[in-house]
Simulated assay, not measured.
Amino acid sequence: MGTTLGIFMGYCVCYGSYHNYSDARQWRIPVGLSFAWAIISMFGTILAPESPRFLVQKGKIEMAKESIAKINRAQNNSTIVLDELNNLMEAIELENQTGKPNWKEFFTGKPKIFFRVTMGVVLDSLQQLTGNTYFFYYATSTFKSVGLTDGFMTSIILGVDNFASTFVALYIIDHLGRRKTLMSGSAGMLACMAAYSILGVVALYPKEYGVDPKKPIGDAMIFFCCLFIFFFATTWGPGVYVIVGESYPLRIRADAIAIATAGNWIWGFLIAFFTPIITNVIHFAYGFVFVGTAAFELVFVFTCVPETKGMCLEDVDELYEHFTPGLAFRTKQTAKNNT
C-alpha cells in the first residue's frame, strides 16, 4: 500500500509542478521531494527498534524480547512475544548447527528447494509480464491516441486506480487464499487486455493508425485499461510478494527472495526497453502478447503453486514434502490425507 501511495503522490507532484511552472522547477521540485522522503526514511530507520533476529543472534535475549513486544504492541512476557522469541531462538540454533547456506543447496536442498526457488522466479517474472508495465509506462502515449492528451492527468487516473485497489487486496488475499486470488486476477486481466487489444486493432481507427480515432472506442479502451489495473492491484501486484515471502525456510529465505526479485527487475527492464520498439511496429496488437502470458499464468498457478494461506514457514516445509510439481490443485487434499 505504501508503494502505491508513493506512486500516486509522485504523479500528483509531477502534475502540479508541470502545470504551474515553466522553468527548471518542473523537475527540481519532484527530485527535491524525493530527497526529503529519503531523509525522513533515514531518521525513521534510526528510531525503529532493532531486528529481534539480529539481537537473538548476538545473544541479547532481553533486548530481543523488548523489540518483539514493541513491534507487536504487547507486554514483554505476553504469549505472542514469548512464542515468537522461542521460534527465533530455535531457528537460529538450527542455523548454527547446519551452517550457512551455500549455492549448492539451492539446487539439491530439501524439500524441493530448487522447485520453490524456480517457482518464485517465474511468479516474479510473470508479475511484470501481466502487462501492467505496458500500461503504467506507456499509457500516456497510448491514451493520446484515443483523445486524452494530458499525459500527467492520465498518470493520476491510473495512480488513483492503483492505490484505491490496494485496499481491496488486503481483504481478498486472506479471504480467498493465494491461489484463487492470483487465478481470478489472471482471468480478469486476460479479459480486459483482450478487449483492449481487439478494440485497438479492429475498431479504434477506421482507416489507419494515428488518423481520427473514434472517441467512443477510445473511451472504452480507457475503461478496460483502468479495469485491468484494478485486477492487477488487487491480485498479482501484492499477491506475488505474499506467496514468495511464504515459500522458503528461514535458512535460505532472504537469498531465495532476492533471486526471485531479480527475475522481476530483469523482465521489467526488458519490457520497458522493447515496448516502444514493438508498439511502433504492431501497435495495439502488442496487447495479445500479454493475453498469452495471462493464460499461462492461470495454468501455472493452477498446476504449480500450492496454497500457503495461514501456514507458518515450518508448515510450508511439510507441505512441500508431500507436494508433486504440476499437481498443485491436489495439494490441499493430499495434505489433509497426510494429517
Rank of each mutant, 00 (worst) to 15 (best):
G6A: 02
G16Y: 07
Y18V: 08
R25D: 12
R28G: 06
P30I: 03
V31D: 10
G32I: 04
S34H: 11
F35M: 05
F35V: 14
W37K: 01
I39T: 03
F43H: 11
G44S: 00
G44C: 01
T45C: 10
I46T: 06
P49W: 03
E50R: 04
F54W: 15
L55M: 01
S67P: 13
S67R: 11
S67D: 02
K70E: 12
R73Y: 13
R73L: 13
T79S: 14
L82T: 04
E84L: 00
L85Q: 05
E90K: 14
A91D: 14
E93F: 07
L94R: 11
N96K: 15
N96L: 12
T98R: 13
G99R: 04
K104T: 07
K104A: 09
E105Q: 15
T108F: 14
G109H: 12
P111S: 05
R116P: 09
D124K: 06
S125N: 05
L126A: 00
L126E: 00
L126I: 02
N132Y: 03
T133N: 09
Y134L: 10
F136Y: 15
S141N: 07
T142N: 11
S145A: 05
T149L: 11
F152Y: 13
I156R: 14
I156V: 08
G159Q: 12
D161S: 10
D161W: 09
A164L: 08
T166K: 09
V168K: 12
L170Q: 12
Y171C: 01
I172K: 03
I173G: 04
H175P: 11
G177C: 00
R179A: 01
M183L: 01
S186H: 07
A187H: 09
A187G: 14
G188F: 06
A191E: 01
C192A: 04
M193L: 13
Y196M: 04
Y205I: 03
P206W: 13
P213G: 08
K214W: 11
K215W: 11
K215C: 02
I217W: 09
I217N: 08
D219F: 15
F228E: 04
F231K: 02
T235Q: 07
G237A: 05
G237E: 07
Y241I: 06
V242I: 12
Y248L: 05
P249D: 12
I252L: 08
D255G: 04
A256C: 04
I257G: 06
A258R: 06
W267S: 12
W267V: 11
G268S: 00
F269W: 01
L270V: 13
L270P: 07
A272Q: 02
F274S: 04
T275G: 02
T275N: 03
I278T: 08
I278K: 11
N280A: 08
H283N: 11
Y286H: 07
G287L: 11
F288L: 14
F290N: 05
L298Y: 12
F302E: 06
C304A: 08
V305E: 08
E307R: 03
T308M: 13
K309S: 02
E314L: 14
V316S: 00
D317G: 01
L319Q: 01
P325M: 06
G326N: 02
F329N: 15
R330V: 06
R330K: 14
T331L: 04
T331R: 10
K332C: 00
A335K: 11
A335H: 13
K336E: 13
